[in-house]
Simulated scan of single mutants.
Amino acid sequence: MTTSGDSRGKGLDQDGFFVREGSLARVPAPFAPVVAELTARLATRFAPDRLVSSYLYGSIPRGTAVPGVSDLDALLVLRTGPGDADRAAARAVEAELDAAFPQIDGAGFLLIAEDRLLGDQERYDMAWFVACLCTPLGGPDVTAALPRYRPTSLLARETNGDLHRRLPGMRERAAAAATREERDRLTRGITRNLVRTGFTLVMPRWGGWTSDLAESAEVFAHYYPAHADQMRAAARAARHPAAYPDLLDDLLNGLAPWLADTYLAVHGAKALPPQGP
């Protein structure tokens, strides 16, 4: 493992700032047609005055996607909204791509309004995510003028310092999952979230960034060896949820509450969004 005083190989430049991960040049050849079709379908489904910019994130722009296993992740920055028509258009493109390309295991889009993304509330959450972990696909890079980011406790708090609030909902969804497919999908999403939360818990001490789930679990394990086995199991289940049918309940009743409490003790709670009038 790279030592905490050396940022080389840790997703940072020589000055300790995040280096944007991923690029269109890294998209593996089997996924190039998917990305091209995504661009074409977005242009068809969204009017130019609605869609400001589009981004890719995840394993495809990082160059680590596996045909038939990896999903297609995209983020759409809208002029305003998003509204029901925007969500319907996004869902339609997701379904069309999933049906047309067997090399992806589903497509999922995040939608956010430009003013919200660039507002103070999202400065250390979604704005950081887009600026550092998303690859520009179409339109201007709306985060280009933002200050650069370092792996600080503030960033850790504002990205994942709300697990204690989300945990009851996770348990409710797990209890309500009626089919194996639904359970697997939930296991995949929750385990990914827990591994990333575990990593950001120790991110400022480690002094770097990784999106690799296995590496994230190992970095976490270095600082919290008593919980290493559970975190490693979560990382494995995030890739192959069907192989771990009973793990989700164990994590939600063991690792997750410990992680939520420890996160609050180390970094504090993520700021609540402002209340409307």
Results as ranks from 00 to 15, higher is better:
50 R>H: 02
31 F>L: 01
40 A>S: 06
43 A>Y: 07
28 P>R: 05
28 P>Q: 00
45 R>D: 12
28 P>M: 02
47 A>S: 12
29 A>G: 13
50 R>V: 00
15 D>I: 07
44 T>E: 15
13 D>V: 10
14 Q>I: 07
31 F>R: 02
50 R>G: 00
42 L>Q: 01
17 F>P: 05
25 A>K: 09
12 L>D: 04
39 T>H: 12
17 F>R: 08
46 F>G: 00
47 A>V: 02
24 L>G: 07
11 G>S: 05
23 S>L: 08
43 A>W: 05
11 G>E: 03
19 V>N: 06
40 A>V: 00
31 F>D: 01
13 D>F: 01
24 L>R: 10
26 R>N: 14
36 A>E: 15
30 P>W: 00
33 P>F: 01
36 A>Q: 14
32 A>D: 11
30 P>H: 01
27 V>H: 06
20 R>E: 02
12 L>H: 01
16 G>Y: 10
25 A>T: 12
38 L>N: 05
35 V>G: 04
24 L>Q: 12
47 A>P: 09
12 L>Y: 02
46 F>I: 03
11 G>F: 02
43 A>M: 09
20 R>L: 11
16 G>I: 12
36 A>I: 11
37 E>L: 09
44 T>V: 15
45 R>Y: 07
34 V>F: 04
23 S>W: 03
22 G>H: 06
29 A>T: 14
39 T>S: 15
23 S>D: 12
49 D>G: 03
29 A>K: 15
34 V>D: 09
38 L>V: 08
26 R>Y: 11
39 T>A: 15
48 P>F: 05
29 A>F: 12
44 T>L: 15
25 A>N: 13
35 V>Y: 02
28 P>N: 05
30 P>N: 05
10 K>C: 06
39 T>L: 14
43 A>T: 09
27 V>S: 07
11 G>D: 02
10 K>L: 08
20 R>G: 07
42 L>F: 05
19 V>A: 09
10 K>I: 05
44 T>M: 13
21 E>K: 12
29 A>R: 15
48 P>N: 03
26 R>D: 13
40 A>G: 03
34 V>C: 08
42 L>M: 00
11 G>C: 08
25 A>I: 08
10 K>M: 08
22 G>Y: 04
41 R>M: 11
13 D>G: 09
12 L>W: 06
16 G>A: 11
26 R>L: 15
24 L>V: 07
38 L>M: 06
29 A>S: 15
17 F>Y: 14
26 R>E: 14
36 A>G: 14
